[in-house]
Amino acid sequence: MDWVKIVYSLILLVCGIWIIITMFSDKGDERKKFIKMKAQSYAFTIVIGTLLLHVVETIYITVQGNTSYNNGNGISPLVSLTLAIITYLVTLLIYRKKYGD
């Protein structure tokens, strides 16, 4: 089961590096910069929203006194990274189609 996590992490790392390289490869086109900025801001909003929901859920569970429900299970960095990458790629494709890149 550990090899699945390693392979999945490597795939995410390659996707992240690919996104960064493609983001900084072309310079000078304002429309491309606008599309990337819109996609980045939407992905950032989604990630912050999920983090806020997790914080609210943790506070609610703590106030209710049910500490056994969330017994040491925090936010998975792998899931958070996956959510950010998928959100960014989907919104990037949507905005590229919408604004014609």
Rank of each mutant, 00 (worst) to 15 (best):
Met37Ala: 08
Tyr42Gln: 09
Lys33Trp: 15
Glu30Cys: 09
Ile6Leu: 15
Lys33Ile: 11
Ile59Tyr: 09
Lys98Gln: 09
Phe24Val: 10
Lys5Ser: 11
Phe24Lys: 11
Ile35Thr: 01
Thr58Lys: 11
Lys98Glu: 11
Thr67Cys: 04
Thr58Leu: 09
Asn66Phe: 14
Asn70Asp: 14
Thr91Val: 00
Val79Pro: 01
Ile61Asn: 02
Ile35Trp: 09
Asn66Arg: 12
Met37Asp: 07
Ile17Met: 15
Lys36Leu: 07
Thr22Ala: 06
Leu12Ser: 05
Val47Met: 06
Thr58Trp: 12
Val56Glu: 01
Gly49Lys: 10
Lys32Asp: 01
Thr22Lys: 15
Lys33Arg: 14
Gln64Trp: 05
Ser9Tyr: 14
Ile86Gln: 03
Tyr88Asp: 02
Val14Asp: 03
Phe34Asp: 11
Ile48Val: 07
Thr82Val: 02
Asp2Ala: 05
Thr58Asn: 07
Ile85Glu: 14
Ile48His: 00
Tyr88Leu: 12
Ile21Gln: 05
Lys33Cys: 13
Leu78Met: 10
Val55Asp: 02
Arg96Met: 13
Ile35Ser: 04
Tyr60Glu: 02
Leu12Asp: 02
Glu30His: 03
Lys36Ser: 03
Lys36Phe: 12
Phe24Ala: 13
Ile46Trp: 00
Val14Tyr: 04
Ser25Met: 10
Tyr8Ala: 14
Ser41Arg: 15
Ile48Glu: 01
Met1Cys: 09
Thr91Asp: 06
Ala84Leu: 12
Thr82Ser: 13
Gln40Lys: 09
Leu12Glu: 11
Tyr95Pro: 08
Asp26Leu: 06
Leu92Gln: 08
Ile59His: 07
Lys97Arg: 15
Thr87Met: 03
Gly49Ser: 14
Val55Thr: 06
Ile48Trp: 05
Ile19Thr: 01
Val90Thr: 03
Gln64Ser: 07
Ile46Met: 07
Gly28Lys: 11
Val55Ala: 06
Val14Thr: 00
His54Cys: 06
Ile48Ser: 01
Gln64Arg: 08
Leu92Met: 05
Cys15Asn: 06
Ile19Leu: 12
Leu13Glu: 07
Val56Lys: 00
Met23Ser: 07
Tyr42Lys: 15
Ile17Ala: 14
